[in-house]
Amino acid sequence: MREEESIIEGRNAVLEALRAKKPIDKLFVLDGCMDGPIRSIIREAKKTDAILNFVTKERLTQISATGKHQGAIAYVASYEYSTVEDMLALAKEKGEDPFLILLDGIEDPYNLGAIIRTANLAGAHGVIIPKRRAASLTATVARTSSGAINYTPVAKVTNLVKTMEELKKEGLWFACADMDGEVMYRSNLKGPIGLVIGNEGEGVSRLVKETCDYVISIPMKGDIDSLNASVACGVFAYEIVRQRGDAVC
């Protein structure tokens, strides 16, 4: 077990956690075992957003902290997830155009925590992350956010593209961060907007990028060609702040 993750082991403990609706990110069960308790765990897991993994006994033993997993291990998020609807409601409550940050495969918990911190300071109404292949709300993320995780909603969705299409119906436009995009100063980033930041190595995936309305970039004048994902997010976010007229002159 890694230090930043909460873990629950044992059939009864995992089943009760699911029934109590704890924010479980990942669930590991013994492949091929279909006795009553395991079937109940699988049934309850399918009612949630938890990623269900069927693994070998050796794999369970490897990730177990106690050696008494009984064929079931759950990783629990350190903080509760919010919903996209909550974010839109927050913007409406504040009388502001929605400003959301969507992360396409950010895997480093330090980057995620730093982005949540930036989102809070830049006045974003929430951060949206995908269910798979992405960092989740671990204690490391919470620490790196410097407390911002307590104030900035974070939602986990199954499909980013579908979520973006639904948000477009609510009037949002989406700007994709990419080195090949138009320089951000020349783009109109006012109004209801979603800023899309891609994976640390591969950037924004093709389908997500194609769903965006425009592609923006940061002018680079140095000898390397990219910024850290959380730093880039901060630069883009504050250009949005400036264009929205929220910047203090």
Rank of each mutant, 00 (worst) to 15 (best):
V235N: 06
L88T: 06
I42Y: 11
E80G: 10
A139N: 05
I42Q: 08
N150T: 13
D31L: 07
D213Q: 05
R117I: 03
K68S: 11
E85W: 03
V241S: 05
L60M: 12
I193L: 15
S217E: 03
R19E: 14
T56C: 01
T144L: 06
N53E: 13
T163F: 02
S217R: 07
L137H: 02
S230T: 00
I8D: 03
R43Y: 12
V14C: 08
K168S: 12
L160G: 07
D223T: 12
T66F: 07
C33Q: 14
I197C: 09
A77V: 06
A74F: 01
I224D: 11
A247Y: 10
P98F: 06
P153H: 01
L103D: 02
T158A: 15
I51S: 10
E210G: 02
D246C: 07
C233R: 02
Y214Q: 14
L172M: 12
A229G: 07
K22S: 11
A134D: 03
I128C: 01
K26R: 15
D25H: 08
E170D: 12
I41A: 05
Q62Y: 13
I7Y: 03
P23L: 00
K209I: 04
S187K: 15
V231D: 02
V208M: 06
R244V: 08
R242V: 02
S217K: 03
A20T: 10
S145N: 04
E96Y: 00
L88R: 10
L103K: 08
A148P: 08
Y238D: 02
I128P: 01
S64Q: 05
V161Q: 07
N150A: 14
P98S: 11
L30F: 04
L137N: 05
K221C: 04
K156E: 02
E9F: 09
G194H: 08
A50W: 08
Y79D: 14
F54L: 14
T83G: 06
G105Y: 00
E166P: 00
G194L: 07
V76P: 03
V204I: 10
A229Y: 04
M179F: 03
K221L: 14
K168I: 01
K169S: 09
